[in-house]
Design a protein around this nucleic acid. Sequence first.
DNA 1: TTTATTAATCGTAATTATACGATGAATGGA
DNA 2: TCCATTCATCGTATAATTACGATTAATAAA
Lengths: 119, 119
Amino acid sequence: MTIKLLIMSKITDKNTDITLENPEIIRSAAISKALGHPARIAILKILAQQKTCFCGDITGIIPLAQSTVSQHLKVLKTAGLIIGTVEGVNTCYCLNPDGVKELHNLLSELSTELVINCC
Amino acid sequence: MTIKLLIMSKITDKNTDITLENPEIIRSAAISKALGHPARIAILKILAQQKTCFCGDITGIIPLAQSTVSQHLKVLKTAGLIIGTVEGVNTCYCLNPDGVKELHNLLSELSTELVINCC
DNA sequence: TTTATTAATCGTAATTATACGATGAATGGA
DNA sequence: TCCATTCATCGTATAATTACGATTAATAAA
């Protein structure tokens, strides 16, 4: 086995081994955690439906205080699932394509792995 | 519109409307929350790989105290993602097919909705 | 019967999450 | 310039999460 292949297998191992240090597992958990509140799923769905919207729009739709909505938006932003752009006095939020793609890839990979190997 | 259709449309609305009371959103968030920790994703992957295993096996693989693993197993069980069967002094855990299917359906539906409508 | 093993639960401590109102910075309009 | 609007952040209270060791109940083995 060449050194290159050895390194490749190590990289592969790192992403397939079931370890708490596995970056795929860590990232999947982080994304799932961000999805782990009804308000945040609702926000993502609103952004998917309306493409872009202001923080105030969301506050109008979801019956939570403005500060609470802002906190949820921060969680989604920190998780890389949305992007916020300041437009004058408003902040325009939209889905982050990269984050959403990652979400889709990681979660469909995981859920497929689970359904296939379901007892 | 007949009464039946009216009722059907109401049921449909209940599952498509973006509300914090929408059962699909609530369930998706609950499942995501259960996935929201690396240890729990690792446990699910172990169960997918080994089909069934005892609590002690998992404790051997994941570097966490037995009580902590037991707590994570409880979270997954409460979320309906795994099943635990007492076998003598051991408890045999396996994936819950119904829960895993629900996970797969809800999360792929959500992630597809998000990727399709990504800016 | 006594002892060992397994795994759930209890008790506890530290951290994180969730919600709200209040405050403050930035911008737009009067 | 002054006021209104928007939204992030602060302060804060409460609840939930995460981790651990200790304990307990149930079963298996000696």
